[in-house]
Amino acid sequence: MKAERRRKLSEWLVTLPSFLWLLLLFLVPTALVFAIMFKPATPYGGIGEGWTLATLRTLGNPNYPAIVARTLWLSVAATALCILLATPMGYYMARVSPARRRLVLLLVILPFWTSFLVRIFAWKVLLHPEGMLKHGLVLLGLIAPETSLLYNAYAVLLVMVYTELPFAILPIYAASEKFDFRLIEAAKDLGATSFLAFRKIFLPGIRVGLLTAFLMVFIPSLGSYVIPDIVGGPTSEMIGNKIAQRTFVDRNLPHAAGLSALLTVAVLIPMVAITALRRKESPKDALREEGV
């Protein structure tokens, strides 16, 4: 009994720092955001006394659903594109010679050596109406001269994919590197074509990497505001832009908190749903599904 209690105690002591960290830096701030939502705003950007539901009512503003929808579809599209590009990349990186692999890995993380903002401004230059890319595409007859490459949702999507891609490649590469490629041979030996082996054996084999890549890209995408601010236009505003606008321009912290809470709930609902579904799907149920 004594040994048991001691083991429990040491377990607690070991996990205590991370608990405190989570509590002080994640849970408390999140709770504060939710609390501020119910406070009145003062004209000078402060938080007033008492409680109010005024902010909650403004969330019903017909502008918001469109912005939330746009935020969601841009994030989903960016995540999908990133994973679609990163999976073959991860497969390739796991298969090439170690020397080549080191080089490719270096190239993948090379962009991080340049400031995030500088890279986005570089895209602005690239996509500029007077930029080389535009002129080239017009010359090739691929786009009409009046088309704008900048200040629309597609520009935002492009730069989001560009920015987030390494965060998808790295976890997928890490999972692919651990993948036992003899399983692919085994699948082919059992009659599967290369594509089928990839789909039925490789993809399930790296599912942890895929899931990590999804979270690493999707969640930051939802909160992005710098990219739509710089390369996007009024029609490609995301919820992050609105939060920034409420904070810095309107100086209305309760409004900003309300939008933040909305975003948090939007992220939490699917995640809680997925977790709940997973827990329900115990191994035995999965077997029964097979019908044996």
């Binding site: 036992d180 003899r182 399983l183 041979e185 085994a186 699948a187 030996d189 059992l190 054996i201 399930p204």
Partner: peptide
């Protein structure tokens, strides 16, 4: 069909 040294059973 082959029986591999590592068996190569599909883990999932």
């Amino acid at each position: 069909n082959t029986i591999f040294q590592s068996y190569a059973l599909f883990p999932h």
